[in-house]
Design a protein around this nucleic acid. Sequence first.
DNA 1: ATGGTTGCAAACACTTTGCACATGA
DNA 2: TCATGTGCAAAGTGTTTGCAACCAT
Lengths: 141, 141
Amino acid sequence: MRNNIHDCRGELNDVKLRATPARIAIMKYFEREDKPADVQMLIDYLKKQKINADPATIFRIVNTFTEKGLTRQISLNEGKYRYELADKHDHHHLICEACGNIEDMTDCNIDDLEKDIKKKKGFNVKSHSLEFFGICKSCQH
Amino acid sequence: MRNNIHDCRGELNDVKLRATPARIAIMKYFEREDKPADVQMLIDYLKKQKINADPATIFRIVNTFTEKGLTRQISLNEGKYRYELADKHDHHHLICEACGNIEDMTDCNIDDLEKDIKKKKGFNVKSHSLEFFGICKSCQH
DNA sequence: ATGGTTGCAAACACTTTGCACATGA
DNA sequence: TCATGTGCAAAGTGTTTGCAACCAT
């Protein structure tokens, strides 16, 4: 019974990827943290787990994950990419311009708008990204 | 009467920037085109106008324009920035994943959502970005 | 005249790639 | 075993910066 500890091997097997330490750790990161991570954050996290990984490897991992549909690549106007789990649908981010914190926001209804776009413009929406920039509660004091 | 030809000197004066050929041409580009431009597009456009400009100069111009509030810097998950006029409020983009074309989309009502965010999370929204990815009409044949 | 702007080169940050070695199944 | 994954180094993009020369006002 090796499955009592959930270590993401299942998810990796499902998409025909080998379960290497770095991949397992990164999957765990994404399942634990709700904040989209950039490559440096992942390297730092792995280092804490005593896993040393080259940036090139991390880039390869997140790119593979994204191709396989495990993760999603997003950009928050920072000059770099971030990555997050792809399975949560229709959620957005509140990005604090003061402290840089990123908060998740779920349940926004853009479906109507997408139908509207289809009708008015003939454009077939596959996905969307919605980000809010502003000042978070604790930075307002 | 040198103002019969609108050459954007007014906008530049308003924000205390000198009216150089490159700046004037870039302002004209933005006023004419509705598609957000990246730096390479601006260089190509200037070249057509017989204005040779260094990438560094273009980056400096769009950064200055953005600081002064003339333009806005956006990212469409491409690994680079694009720039567009800042004066159009509340508009979004339809990005075709087949042909790469970017179409503007106006009149979306996110105000309610922003009020909701303020109420529920205490997060004070200053701006947002909303992009739709999909397949445009002419790519569906 | 003079301070803002530009060109050029160099540096920087992020990301990708080639290849030899290592490793998971 | 052997296809897949990784480390390292190099290269590829996009972007910024220092400084001398240039030009708009």
